[in-house]
Design a protein around this nucleic acid. Sequence first.
DNA 1: TTATAATTGTGAAAAATTTCACAAGATGAG
DNA 2: CTCATCTTGTGAAATTTTTCACAATTATAA
Lengths: 209, 209
Amino acid sequence: MRIPRTTIHRLSIYLRCLHDLREEKSETISSEKFASLVGVKPTQLRKDLAYFGQFGTRGRGYDVDKLASGIVRILGTGKIRKVAIVGVGSLGSALLSYRGFSKRGFEVAVAFDMKAGKIGRRSRWPEILPATRMAAEIKKRGIKIAVIAVPATAAQKVADKLVAAGVRAILNFAPTRLFVPRGVSVESVDLAMGLEGLAYSLKSRGRSQ
Amino acid sequence: MRIPRTTIHRLSIYLRCLHDLREEKSETISSEKFASLVGVKPTQLRKDLAYFGQFGTRGRGYDVDKLASGIVRILGTGKIRKVAIVGVGSLGSALLSYRGFSKRGFEVAVAFDMKAGKIGRRSRWPEILPATRMAAEIKKRGIKIAVIAVPATAAQKVADKLVAAGVRAILNFAPTRLFVPRGVSVESVDLAMGLEGLAYSLKSRGRSQ
DNA sequence: TTATAATTGTGAAAAATTTCACAAGATGAG
DNA sequence: CTCATCTTGTGAAATTTTTCACAATTATAA
């Protein structure tokens, strides 16, 4: 059975929300309350989960802890996954120090940059290595996920090298399409796209929405 | 007629690609070539555009310049829109120096932060002002779009203040849901969500995909 | 001018996704 | 135990989005 991409994205949102719920007091929550919290319809929440099995108890709702670990198991973020960041410009630096990754099961294990100036600047962790060592280090560490934060003009070459070194999933922040072989996944985040969507909403307020 | 959100997102991608095409040589392009370039089906491209009118010439294709300005008109990014950034941590700093915004018709006019240390550090442009002046400055400058790059715990309060000050569209980088009044748009970017989607792809390789 | 080839725009069909409606299971009170 | 209440899981319906198929329009060459 094919699972919609949007379902996977919503699963992330559910998980984030469950984390918050856990930090409060809640032990169980109904699909109705939970859905209103994350901003979807209760039936959608239930259908999303139904793709993967049964997670709740009729008449009672969902156990917050159990559901959270269920979603973690679905997404496959249970055991910590190592991530490499390529490009330590301002965005790359921001991602290096972003605490959100480790909270969600990812460890930024190493970063690479062309410019020698950046290398080793950051005191200890994660290491910033010269781009020349990229392929070797990624192979050595068995890294399967990489983040591209280099200029658009360099992104495709970086992607090619990453894939050759064994990377199977790429989070791309460069505003360009990446061509990768079958079997390699790419998720792209275009920072300006969000603004363009907002500009459209502003312009067409009162009509469609 | 209701226009799908995904259509608007794709329009952004089309526009980005048209920019690249323009920087090369291409004067016209067929929906077939264009679609394969951006990674969609030709019919989807044509249907997306059809929501907004006619942009091509039968037997010839699309004029790159005309189509680009057509999409710009649709999105409403023709005249430069001023944007405020709230939160000058590492992510906020990265966004401040991100050239992609101005390329796409947005001007980061001002930034705000709580910590005095950040304020005025950056030599001239854009100004970094204390958060206390946020409401007043946003009103004064007539800013309608803001970017939230503060910790999740502070995001809702910031959003409330922004809306009270007249902001009508928010690009939210805090990993939390924002509640805003009707008539205000929010687009959220959760940096870790992309990685979770990738983790899922890695785990379920060979089955569904 | 006429025929041929190219390519858009679009109504209709197909596919995918969301929502509904309710049976099935669980809980708690009497 | 029985009844009333709550809430999930799910087949079916409704809606949305994508894809198809082709008529309509333009360009080009003979």
